[in-house]
């Protein structure tokens, strides 16, 4: 492994930038993601920063059951994120639609039909510790030795 690669690994393990997007949820999971920023859970001590700007992001947290308004927007947003990138589905809604996935509703779950999802956090809503654990466990799998793996 080259020195440059090890430097990249070190930097990427300490600076994970997160954007979150709500594709039609009840805001319960948004509140739990927001709670991760609070002093009790404090994701910044693990080097995770929330910018909510896809151009700067490494990880996209997808929340919600995918309403029709997102049909052309979500994939565009996913394209805007520079490599290496990873999407995590937070909550039941992007996994299965949960309570919204009933007859005569317009939602179109799962979100993995539309963008590639690397990890799923079940729960309605998931606890902040679970969201944090998902981000911390999926980040080294994708970001460590990214250039070596790509080649």
């Amino acid at each position: 492994m080259s020195i440059l690669q090890s430097v990249k690994n070190l930097v990427r393990s300490k600076s994970i930038h997160v954007a979150y997007v709500d594709v039609g949820s009840c805001n319960g999971c948004d509140i739990e993601v927001l709670a991760c920023l609070s002093p009790r859970y404090d994701i910044e001590q693990y080097g995770i920063y929330v910018h909510n700007n896809p151009r700067e992001a490494d990880i996209l947290l997808v929340i919600g059951a995918y309403t029709p308004g997102w049909e052309e927007k979500l994939h565009t947003l996913w394209e805007k994120i520079p490599d290496p990138k990873v999407a995590i589905a937070v909550g039941n809604c992007p996994i299965s639609g949960c309570l919204f996935n009933r007859p005569h509703t317009l939602v179109d779950p799962p979100v993995s039909k539309h963008i590639p999802i690397a990890a799923e956090v079940p729960g309605c809503p998931p606890r902040p510790t679970e969201i944090l654990a998902a981000v911390l466990s999926v980040a080294p799998l994708v970001f460590k030795d990214y250039e070596v793996a790509k080649r």
Partner: peptide, 8 residues
């Protein structure tokens, strides 16, 4: 129990 559906 099916995770991803269960709301606990």
């Amino acid at each position: 129990i099916h995770m991803g559906h269960c709301i606990r």
